[in-house]
């Protein structure tokens, strides 16, 4: 094959590829996967592994949830969304494919914080997960361990009823709670 033939083929291929990509790219922004995050009440600050992303309702790109690189010290926040709002419990949610497809609608637990008269934590406090929140709701002075366990299960049921966690999640966390010795 002469060099000129190779060059022509190269040019034609590059042009075809470019046209194809540009045509598809016109709709690219519309089709890239994004995560819609809503909260009840709205206006919660959204924290991702990369830091503050804005306030609910908010739409973020999938790569903001799953960045290609991140500091090791933030590894525990990979794939999570953290919501925090004054007067509400900070909530951390693990993002699944379902979430990306359907969007996240999370209900913040503001009653507990209000009842305790304590403001929502301002520090990242991102280790608090839904499951952990259910497992370790704030202790009430004088509350017996058995009563606390009962309350944990109630919170878990509420999270399920509100659709904030899936049934398998609920079952798994419930099993863990029941398996944990007093």
């Amino acid at each position: 094959m002469r060099r000129s033939e190779t060059g022509r083929r190269l040019t034609v291929s590059a042009l075809l590829f470019g046209v194809l990509a540009v045509q598809h790219g016109a709709a690219a922004d519309l089709t890239l996967r994004k995560l819609r995050i809503e909260s009840e009440p709205p206006g919660a600050e959204v924290l991702l592994i990369g830091g503050k992303a804005g306030h609910t309702p908010l739409t973020v790109g999938e790569r903001a949830i799953y960045p290609n690189d991140y500091p090791d010290k933030l590894a525990h926040l990979y794939g999570t969304v953290t919501l925090r709002r004054a007067g509400c419990e900070t909530l951390v949610h693990r993002v699944t494919l379902d979430d990306i497809e359907r969007g996240l609608k999370l209900k913040l637990d503001c009653a507990v914080a209000d009842a305790r008269g304590t403001p929502a934590p301002q520090a990242p406090a991102a280790e608090t997960t839904i499951s952990q929140a259910a497992r370790t709701p704030p202790a009430i002075p004088g509350e017996a361990l058995s009563q606390r366990r009962l309350r944990q299960l109630q919170v878990l049921q509420e999270l399920l009823d509100e659709g904030l966690i899936s049934a398998p999640d609920e079952q798994r966390i419930r099993r863990r709670l029941l398996d944990t010795p007093f």
Partner: peptide
């Protein structure tokens, strides 16, 4: 530590091994 955090992620059905995406309900982007 990191995957312990992902522990709570629900499970359904991710990779040039998309099977892992399905199994752990994670986006390929993960």
């Amino acid at each position: 530590v990191q995957i312990a955090v992902l522990w709570a992620a629900s499970l359904q059905t991710a990779w040039a091994m998309p099977e892992f995406a399905r199994r752990y309900s994670l986006s390929c982007a993960a």
